[in-house]
Nucleic acid binder design. Structure first.
Lengths: 218, 218
DNA sequence: AATATTTTTTAGATTTGTCTAAATTTTATC
DNA sequence: GATAAAATTTAGACAAATCTAAAAAATATT
């Protein structure tokens, strides 16, 4: 079994179950991986043989302890590479994901530990997502979507919910980025769009779809 | 056809033909790639269909212009990654090759250009091998094996011929590394072993097998 | 609860890179 | 130049990951 394929399945199971909670269905996996339900069923049987997942026919799938640890190490690698690409190579936050999808499959353990050290053991990636440490521990942070912030409050942007390239590019164009200060000036009742002030300077109007996908703290 | 497999074949053909000169035989490739002659024959037919190689049954194989360019870009990627691993992550020169074998297959063009820039457009990798620039141009350098240096001369180490991990580790243990100054003190006629002085300090005796594989200049 | 719909699995086929063993071609030797 | 040895290719098979179409199971609807 190609290790890259295994890793992609494990990561997909982790991510779907994190978002949806509980068991992951065959069709969700097929959708997420861009393949068919039949292929997924075939692969799940093999992964179950390897004790990476718990698989019940017609019910769905769960990661085992080992599978979970594998997924977290993959996420660690992915986010460390994203951080490297952004902070050292100056590649924009909307481009780093795709490249990191390849880099995360490089196997060397020493590589990732040295990379972590080189980057100064960062706790968050360029999108504000937490980077698990070598033991798999995430740094958690209180955060809420911008649309829940009341008028007059000033908050700091710490992450994004949506990771689509088009959304990230749009934020760049405002420009709105991690660690920027946002003051909520107005909220239009009709469509929940918001007028915000960025870094105490320029004002912008953003739709509710945008404010829902921006994570802030304080 | 898996692009990684194609790349490994192309690189192997380039490297063997660089070392041996001329056409590359099926069995040489099989040996180099750790596979069988039959498998190589199968693959060569596919590569020829893709116009990456010129293949004549029973005669051997040559890279086309395109195949050559592909090989050089792979070597560029490999050596840039080796440089990154060594100079930024502080991974020893005997360990970088294996990791770079994986990293070189990551596809992003922007990644490799940014990496090159981040490293300061290095001309040589941690083993002293030249890094082709983005147009595929190598920086050449006059160099000769240490065993050809006469007694009394002082030279600078600029590379190694042998890249085996055991050889590199041995050099580290002396310690002998790139840019070190070497003065030839003696040469034993019987076995061509040499007494050398390193950086005008300590003296060491090295066998002819070692001196043949150390490249120096001046 | 019976039936219709959706989801999942199985069956059987395909593609890719590989293998072994046999056949063929080339090269070396007498 | 005939024959033996070595290298290469072909033939046929296999494992892995995928697919489509059909069958089976679970879920939703009336």
């Amino acid at each position: 079994m190609a290790s890259q394929t295994v890793e992609n399945y494990i990561k997909a199971i982790f991510q779907i179950s994190e978002k949806e909670g509980g068991m992951v269905s065959t069709s969700d996996l097929a959708l997420h991986l861009g393949t068919t339900a039949a292929s997924v069923t075939d692969m799940l049987k093999k992964l179950a043989d390897q004790k990476a997942i718990l698989y019940q026919r017609y019910k769905g799938v769960n990661l085992t302890h080992d599978g979970n640890a594998m997924a977290i190490q993959l996420i660690r690698k992915h986010r460390l590479w994203e951080t490297f690409l952004h902070s050292k190579l100056d590649i924009s936050w909307d481009e780093v994901h795709e490249i990191a999808e390849e880099l995360e499959h490089v196997k060397s353990k020493i590589l990732i530990d040295k990379l972590d050290q080189f980057l100064g053991n960062p706790k968050f990636d360029p999108h504000g997502d937490p980077i698990p440490d070598s033991h798999g521990k995430f740094t958690l942070r209180s955060q809420q979507p911008l649309n829940q912030v009341s008028i007059g409050q000033t908050v700091k942007m710490v992450g994004v919910k949506d990771h689509d390239q088009s959304f990230l590019k749009y934020l760049d164009s405002i420009p709105l980025a991690l660690d920027h200060t946002i003051t909520v000036k107005e909220c239009i009742d009709f469509d929940k769009s918001m007028v915000i002030q960025i870094n105490h300077l320029n004002e912008h109007t953003i739709s509710s779809k945008v404010s829902e996908n921006i994570l802030v703290k304080l």
